[in-house]
Protein backbone atom coordinates (compact mmCIF):
# COMPACT_ATOMS: atom_id res chain seq x y z
CA UNK A 1 0.00 0.00 0.00
CA UNK A 2 2.90 2.38 0.82
CA UNK A 3 6.36 1.58 -0.52
CA UNK A 4 9.17 4.05 0.12
CA UNK A 5 12.37 3.43 -1.85
CA UNK A 6 15.61 5.33 -1.13
CA UNK A 7 13.64 8.53 -0.67
CA UNK A 8 15.80 11.65 -0.40
CA UNK A 9 14.92 15.30 0.00
CA UNK A 10 17.45 18.10 0.02
CA UNK A 11 16.91 21.82 0.60
CA UNK A 12 20.06 23.29 -0.90
CA UNK A 13 22.95 21.81 1.15
CA UNK A 14 20.67 20.52 3.89
CA UNK A 15 19.60 16.88 3.64
CA UNK A 16 16.16 16.68 5.27
CA UNK A 17 15.46 13.06 4.30
CA UNK A 18 18.43 10.80 3.58
CA UNK A 19 17.69 7.78 1.39
CA UNK A 20 15.05 6.11 3.54
CA UNK A 21 13.18 2.93 2.60
CA UNK A 22 10.26 1.13 4.29
CA UNK A 23 6.98 -0.57 3.47
CA UNK A 24 3.58 -0.35 5.12
CA UNK A 25 0.47 -2.36 4.34
CA UNK A 26 -3.32 -2.07 4.41
CA UNK A 27 -5.10 -2.94 7.63
CA UNK A 28 -2.30 -1.73 9.89
CA UNK A 29 -1.22 1.27 11.91
CA UNK A 30 2.36 2.13 10.97
CA UNK A 31 4.28 4.32 13.39
CA UNK A 32 6.70 6.83 11.86
CA UNK A 33 8.73 7.81 14.89
CA UNK A 34 11.49 10.21 15.70
CA UNK A 35 12.35 13.36 17.60
CA UNK A 36 11.50 16.82 16.30
CA UNK A 37 13.57 17.67 13.24
CA UNK A 38 14.20 14.01 12.36
CA UNK A 39 12.56 14.44 8.95
CA UNK A 40 9.10 12.95 9.61
CA UNK A 41 7.07 15.90 8.30
CA UNK A 42 9.30 16.32 5.23
CA UNK A 43 8.92 12.60 4.49
CA UNK A 44 5.13 12.96 4.73
CA UNK A 45 5.15 16.03 2.49
CA UNK A 46 7.22 14.25 -0.15
CA UNK A 47 4.97 11.16 -0.01
CA UNK A 48 1.92 13.42 -0.33
CA UNK A 49 3.58 15.04 -3.41
CA UNK A 50 3.52 18.52 -1.91
CA UNK A 51 7.31 18.54 -2.02
CA UNK A 52 9.30 17.00 -4.86
CA UNK A 53 11.69 14.17 -4.02
CA UNK A 54 15.36 14.89 -4.75
CA UNK A 55 16.15 11.18 -5.05
CA UNK A 56 14.39 7.80 -4.80
CA UNK A 57 10.62 7.47 -4.96
CA UNK A 58 7.52 6.13 -3.21
CA UNK A 59 4.33 4.37 -4.22
CA UNK A 60 0.94 5.02 -2.69
CA UNK A 61 -1.81 2.50 -3.51
CA UNK A 62 0.20 1.50 -6.58
CA UNK A 63 0.74 5.07 -7.83
CA UNK A 64 4.23 6.51 -8.12
CA UNK A 65 4.69 9.91 -6.47
CA UNK A 66 6.78 11.15 -9.39
CA UNK A 67 4.66 9.81 -12.25
CA UNK A 68 1.11 10.11 -10.90
CA UNK A 69 1.08 12.81 -8.22
CA UNK A 70 -2.65 13.60 -8.58
CA UNK A 71 -3.61 9.89 -8.26
CA UNK A 72 -1.41 9.70 -5.16
CA UNK A 73 -3.20 12.69 -3.63
CA UNK A 74 -6.57 11.13 -4.47
CA UNK A 75 -5.65 8.02 -2.46
CA UNK A 76 -4.01 9.69 0.50
CA UNK A 77 -5.41 11.71 3.37
CA UNK A 78 -2.95 13.78 5.36
CA UNK A 79 -3.38 15.52 8.67
CA UNK A 80 -0.37 17.70 9.48
CA UNK A 81 0.38 19.71 12.58
CA UNK A 82 -1.19 22.72 10.82
CA UNK A 83 -4.86 22.35 11.67
CA UNK A 84 -5.93 25.74 10.38
CA UNK A 85 -9.50 26.13 9.14
CA UNK A 86 -11.36 28.81 7.20
CA UNK A 87 -12.61 30.86 10.14
CA UNK A 88 -15.52 32.48 8.31
CA UNK A 89 -16.82 29.06 7.19
CA UNK A 90 -18.74 26.60 9.35
CA UNK A 91 -17.23 23.18 10.03
CA UNK A 92 -19.62 21.70 7.46
CA UNK A 93 -18.68 24.34 4.85
CA UNK A 94 -14.98 23.64 5.45
CA UNK A 95 -15.60 19.93 4.80
CA UNK A 96 -17.79 20.61 1.77
CA UNK A 97 -15.11 22.77 0.13
CA UNK A 98 -12.46 20.10 0.46
CA UNK A 99 -14.92 17.36 -0.56
CA UNK A 100 -15.63 19.23 -3.78
CA UNK A 101 -11.91 19.69 -4.44
CA UNK A 102 -11.49 15.92 -4.01
CA UNK A 103 -14.07 15.51 -6.78
CA UNK A 104 -17.09 14.63 -4.63
CA UNK A 105 -20.41 16.37 -4.84
CA UNK A 106 -24.17 16.29 -4.37
CA UNK A 107 -25.87 13.87 -2.02
CA UNK A 108 -22.86 11.56 -1.80
CA UNK A 109 -20.72 14.35 -0.35
CA UNK A 110 -23.43 15.50 2.07
CA UNK A 111 -23.85 11.91 3.29
CA UNK A 112 -20.10 11.56 3.79
CA UNK A 113 -19.97 14.85 5.73
CA UNK A 114 -22.87 13.72 7.97
CA UNK A 115 -21.08 10.42 8.57
CA UNK A 116 -17.85 12.17 9.60
CA UNK A 117 -19.74 14.58 11.84
CA UNK A 118 -21.28 11.58 13.57
CA UNK A 119 -18.09 9.48 13.81
CA UNK A 120 -15.96 12.35 15.14
CA UNK A 121 -18.74 13.64 17.41
CA UNK A 122 -18.96 17.10 15.84
CA UNK A 123 -22.76 17.47 15.89
CA UNK A 124 -22.74 20.32 18.43
CA UNK A 125 -20.61 22.64 16.35
CA UNK A 126 -20.91 21.40 12.76
CA UNK A 127 -22.93 24.41 11.66
CA UNK A 128 -21.03 27.05 13.59
CA UNK A 129 -18.27 29.19 12.13
CA UNK A 130 -14.81 27.81 12.84
CA UNK A 131 -13.28 31.10 14.01
CA UNK A 132 -14.08 30.50 17.67
CA UNK A 133 -13.47 26.75 17.84
CA UNK A 134 -11.26 25.28 20.58
CA UNK A 135 -8.11 23.33 19.59
CA UNK A 136 -9.98 20.05 20.08
CA UNK A 137 -12.86 21.13 17.86
CA UNK A 138 -10.45 22.36 15.19
CA UNK A 139 -8.49 19.11 15.33
CA UNK A 140 -11.63 17.06 14.74
CA UNK A 141 -12.63 19.18 11.72
CA UNK A 142 -9.06 18.96 10.38
CA UNK A 143 -9.16 15.16 10.73
CA UNK A 144 -12.53 15.01 8.95
CA UNK A 145 -11.16 17.29 6.23
CA UNK A 146 -8.17 15.01 5.61
CA UNK A 147 -10.33 11.92 5.11
CA UNK A 148 -13.45 13.43 3.52
CA UNK A 149 -12.59 11.60 0.27
CA UNK A 150 -12.30 8.24 2.07
CA UNK A 151 -8.63 7.59 1.12
CA UNK A 152 -6.90 4.21 1.27
CA UNK A 153 -3.87 5.65 3.06
CA UNK A 154 -4.30 7.96 6.04
CA UNK A 155 -1.28 9.85 7.40
CA UNK A 156 -1.70 11.56 10.77
CA UNK A 157 1.10 13.85 11.98
CA UNK A 158 0.89 14.26 15.79
CA UNK A 159 -2.92 13.87 15.74
CA UNK A 160 -3.44 14.08 19.51
CA UNK A 161 -1.12 17.03 20.17
CA UNK A 162 -2.91 19.63 22.26
CA UNK A 163 -6.02 17.51 22.75
CA UNK A 164 -7.68 16.65 26.05
CA UNK A 165 -8.20 13.04 27.09
CA UNK A 166 -11.70 12.73 25.63
CA UNK A 167 -10.80 14.25 22.28
CA UNK A 168 -7.64 12.10 22.12
CA UNK A 169 -9.75 9.01 22.72
CA UNK A 170 -12.01 9.93 19.78
CA UNK A 171 -8.97 10.22 17.50
CA UNK A 172 -7.45 6.95 18.74
CA UNK A 173 -10.77 5.15 18.30
CA UNK A 174 -11.02 6.56 14.79
CA UNK A 175 -7.54 5.26 13.86
CA UNK A 176 -8.39 1.78 15.16
CA UNK A 177 -11.66 1.76 13.20
CA UNK A 178 -9.83 2.82 10.05
CA UNK A 179 -7.42 -0.10 10.51
CA UNK A 180 -10.41 -2.45 10.96
CA UNK A 181 -11.78 -1.13 7.67
CA UNK A 182 -8.59 -2.19 5.91
CA UNK A 183 -6.97 1.26 5.62
CA UNK A 184 -3.31 1.91 6.15
CA UNK A 185 -2.91 4.44 8.95
CA UNK A 186 0.53 6.07 9.21
CA UNK A 187 0.95 7.64 12.64
CA UNK A 188 3.78 10.14 12.76
CA UNK A 189 4.69 11.01 16.34
CA UNK A 190 7.43 11.51 18.88
CA UNK A 191 5.17 10.09 21.59
CA UNK A 192 6.51 6.56 22.08
CA UNK A 193 3.79 5.59 24.51
CA UNK A 194 1.00 6.27 21.99
CA UNK A 195 3.01 4.66 19.20
CA UNK A 196 3.59 1.43 21.17
CA UNK A 197 -0.09 1.12 22.09
CA UNK A 198 -1.33 1.63 18.53
CA UNK A 199 1.31 0.63 15.99
CA UNK A 200 1.69 -2.75 14.32
CA UNK A 201 4.93 -1.78 12.61
CA UNK A 202 7.24 1.19 13.14
CA UNK A 203 10.04 3.06 11.41
CA UNK A 204 12.36 5.25 13.49
CA UNK A 205 13.96 8.32 11.91
CA UNK A 206 16.83 10.24 13.39
CA UNK A 207 18.88 13.03 11.81
CA UNK A 208 17.11 12.52 8.46
CA UNK A 209 17.99 8.81 8.33
CA UNK A 210 16.00 5.67 8.98
CA UNK A 211 17.66 3.99 11.98
CA UNK A 212 15.41 0.94 12.28
CA UNK A 213 12.12 -0.52 11.02
CA UNK A 214 10.02 -3.59 11.76
CA UNK A 215 7.17 -4.79 13.98
CA UNK A 216 7.07 -3.35 17.49
CA UNK A 217 8.25 -6.67 18.99
CA UNK A 218 11.10 -6.94 16.47
CA UNK A 219 12.33 -3.44 17.32
CA UNK A 220 12.12 -4.16 21.08
CA UNK A 221 14.00 -7.42 20.65
CA UNK A 222 16.66 -5.83 18.46
CA UNK A 223 17.25 -3.03 20.97
CA UNK A 224 16.99 -5.28 24.00
CA UNK A 225 14.48 -2.94 25.57
CA UNK A 226 11.27 -3.46 27.53
CA UNK A 227 9.30 -0.73 25.87
CA UNK A 228 9.45 1.40 22.77
CA UNK A 229 10.52 4.52 24.66
CA UNK A 230 13.64 2.74 26.01
CA UNK A 231 14.26 1.18 22.62
CA UNK A 232 13.98 4.59 20.98
CA UNK A 233 16.44 6.19 23.40
CA UNK A 234 18.82 3.25 23.07
CA UNK A 235 18.75 3.23 19.27
CA UNK A 236 18.88 7.00 18.95
CA UNK A 237 21.59 7.10 21.64
CA UNK A 238 23.72 4.61 19.70
CA UNK A 239 23.12 6.59 16.56
CA UNK A 240 24.02 9.79 18.35
CA UNK A 241 27.29 8.20 19.61
CA UNK A 242 28.11 7.00 16.08
CA UNK A 243 27.42 10.47 14.68
CA UNK A 244 29.65 12.11 17.27
CA UNK A 245 32.44 9.60 16.59
CA UNK A 246 32.14 10.19 12.85
CA UNK A 247 32.29 13.95 13.37
CA UNK A 248 35.41 13.56 15.53
CA UNK A 249 37.08 11.39 12.88
CA UNK A 250 36.32 13.96 10.19
CA UNK A 251 37.76 16.70 12.39
CA UNK A 252 40.97 14.68 12.92
CA UNK A 253 41.31 14.08 9.19
CA UNK A 254 40.80 17.75 8.47
CA UNK A 255 43.50 18.68 11.02
CA UNK A 256 45.88 16.09 9.53
CA UNK A 257 45.26 17.51 6.08
CA UNK A 258 46.14 21.02 7.30
CA UNK A 259 49.42 19.86 8.86
CA UNK A 260 50.56 18.38 5.54
Amino acid sequence: MLVVKNLTKRFGDIVAVDSISFEAHEGEIFGLLGPNGAGKTTTIRVIATVLEATGGTAEVAGFDIRKNPEDVRRNIGVLTADIGLYDRFTARENLRYFGELYGLGGEKLEKRIDELIHVLDMGRFADRRAGKFSTGMKQKVAIARSIVHDPKVIIFDEPTAGLDVLASQTVVRFMKNAREMGKLVVLSTHNMHDAEKLSDHVAILHRSKLVTTGSVSEVLQRAGAANLEDAFIKIVGDDEAKSTERARELEQLAKAGKKK
Binding site: D82, L85, Y86, L101
Partner: peptide
Protein backbone atom coordinates in the same frame (compact mmCIF):
# COMPACT_ATOMS: atom_id res chain seq x y z
CA UNK B 1 -4.44 30.57 8.89
CA UNK B 2 -2.35 27.45 8.18
CA UNK B 3 -4.83 26.13 5.61
CA UNK B 4 -2.41 26.23 2.68
CA UNK B 5 -0.89 22.80 3.19
CA UNK B 6 -4.29 21.08 3.42
CA UNK B 7 -5.20 22.79 0.16
CA UNK B 8 -2.01 21.57 -1.53
CA UNK B 9 -2.91 17.96 -0.60
CA UNK B 10 -6.00 17.99 -2.84
CA UNK B 11 -5.67 16.37 -6.28
CA UNK B 12 -6.01 19.68 -8.12
Amino acid sequence: RKTLEALLFVPV
